[in-house]
Design a protein around this nucleic acid. Structure first.
Lengths: 354, 354
DNA sequence: CTGTTAGCGCGTTCAT
DNA sequence: ATGAACGCGCTAACAG
């Protein structure tokens, strides 16, 4: 790592000179233009980047706020991330939590181990980890973490967790279908998110409840493929449309379907409607998520809501606590996902969401 | 600020003991339980939070990556922020930029001056500022910034900027309407974002072009109000619906409307369709944005696209450069917003997007 | 088991 | 106009 003294040596001046020049105080100290040039050139050639830790320590200007690493797998939690930061700010403004700063730490699904240093190094006051695949879960649970850690999924005994009750989410969809007398239903998943623990749980909950309630249930896996030149989010719509085609090829269609992704659901619904299927008369649809498009599509989409804001708030409150008391035993919050009835699946008489 | 030595003093032990205990190395060093307790108690009572700068400096474990502050006004750039980080990662993976870390620095619109220390303190290797209101723009342009700065709007001579050509965006909407022979058109704005520079520019571009092209144009201001218990994003839909009611009260309706916010547009469109207006036959709609719901609503919404990914990429490339060469003169990128024709306003014969 | 001390890289006096 | 020396808060040897 190239430091200020390397630059000084290369430029044939002292470190303080380098410091002055690089911090724009050359004028004040009336340092010769020639010296400045030498310093800058040396700095550029060496690719010098100031060490912020040292700088902050020295100047005492480093913000004294707790720094929290927000691990981000580049896929999930996208709109969640925004809500999370917003809620953090709101809670702070309301005086309910301490202020903190978030640093985005990107990682690739299944490769959480690549950032082990960050996890274990104690470089942050706290750590937030979103839902990840099973390998990553296993990995993180095997780690002896220094920094107070909060997981946004339920599978851990060692760390604090905030998670939705995904089993219940799946079960609720099934219960609603049963309450409106359906016999033959289906669930549609992203295949590539099959690895993702939350998707798995919802599938399990759904299938279990279907069996108990005497409905025949079928699982559709949508294969994930990225189409060149198409944004990943638009791709999901296209996958939904593809799923619809696949779906329509059945001899006898299910009467209701639970679709695990809201954007996929929108693509699916538009496609089957264009094929002449009436929603909800011929086919009821429930999806899982919290995107605004649930409200703007027609018919609007009934959903088991991923309670973004609620989760974020709980998470931040817990974080705020463990930041000062890392020793406290792990806290676990399991949040019930509410049902939001809209057009695509009206509330059956007698059904009560709890 | 309470430091490790304060804790040591209070607990009547030496700093190294505190360090060991607080870092979980008490076991290894077989430090007495009683001492540990004293240390922890002192730490809690004092509200000790370790100074990460010092820790990183000492351990040498601080990530050596450039740290960039992403100023975030809690409103705009929400999905943009995600795209931004994704693109940063992609570009790095492709070897086109250096790796960097982003720290979220929230601020309230109009109060950028509150975070002056962060802007001027040189606590970051770089700074990104999203579109802000005029006061903030003026403020930031008045500042002598240490850290290399990139603005995501065009109004600055001092700093590097990446921005969409908002004047062009407004003009394009007008040109399309003119090309399909409209005579009476309108533009719908968020009132509270009227302060926001980009909204202003698009309005100006639209109105200017309308005048030149011989169309009568009217401005609708939607008053911003937050409804208790309703998420801010859902509120925008409701505002769109309210705007529709207002709109429908006119004696003679415009033949086409440019709506500056895509979510608002969706709410507006659904409401007028339910009132019996046919889109695009009776009313053509163009919106500005890049949300997925443009594709999922029916009819789908034609838009002047906010080229999220493009902007993000340009921004990150520039950042990557100025990080190592803060001296280089400011770079300015103005990006042409493409038109994406969908159902709500078909492409007029003879119109060519350029 | 606990205390002492030498740096980590940088900004900042203070002499020169 | 420039260099030497000190200290920011903390960790990691090393002493005891």
């Amino acid at each position: 790592m190239v430091s200020i003294s390397d630059v000084a040596e290369k430029a044939n001046v002292s470190v303080s000179t380098v410091s002055l020049v690089l911090n724009g105080k050359a004028e004040d100290m009336r340092i010769s233009q020639e010296t400045c040039d030498r310093v800058w050139r040396a700095s550029l050639e060496l690719g010098y980047i100031p060490n912020l830790a040292a700088k902050k320590l020295s100047t005492g200007k480093g913000s004294r706020l707790p720094e929290v690493a927000f691990f981000w797998n580049l896929v999930h939690s996208s709109s969640f991330m925004i809500t999370f930061f917003s809620e953090a700010q709101d809670l702070f403004d309301e005086g309910k939590t301490r202020e903190m700063r978030f640093v985005i730490e990107p990682f690739r699904e299944g490769q959480l181990s690549c950032v082990e240093d960050l996890l274990t190094g104690g470089q942050y006051h706290g750590i937030v980890v979103p839902p990840v695949c099973e390998e990553d879960i296993e990995y993180i649970n095997s780690l002896e973490l220094r920094s107070p850690t909060l997981l946004l999924f339920g599978e851990s005994d060692k760390h604090s967790t905030v998670a939705v009750d995904n089993i219940r989410a799946g079960r609720k969809a099934a219960e609603i279908f049963a309450a409106s007398g359906k016999k033959k239903v289906a669930i549609i998943n992203h295949r590539n998110s099959e690895k993702e623990i939350n998707v798995k749980c919802r599938t399990v909950g759904f299938m279990e409840a279907c069996a108990e309630l005497g409905m025949s249930a079928e699982i559709f896996e949508v294969l994930q493929k990225q189409i060149r030149g198409v944004s990943s989010i638009k791709t999901i719509i296209l996958l939904g449309e593809a799923a619809a085609e696949d779906f329509l090829r059945r001899r006898r269609l299910p009467e209701a379907v639970f679709i695990q992704n809201d954007i996929l659901a929108a693509g699916f619904m538009n496609a089957i409607i264009e094929a002449g299927v009436r929603v909800p008369e011929d086919l009821e649809i429930i999806t899982f998520g919290d995107d605004i498009l649930l409200e703007t599509c027609r018919p609007t989409l009934t959903s088991i809501q991923f309670p973004t804001a609620r989760i974020a708030r709980e998470a931040i409150m817990i974080l705020s606590d463990i930041l000062v008391n890392p020793l406290a035993p792990p806290v676990k919050k399991l949040i019930e996902p509410p049902v939001v009835f809209r057009d695509s699946c009206p509330k059956p008489g007698g059904y009560e969401d709890n």
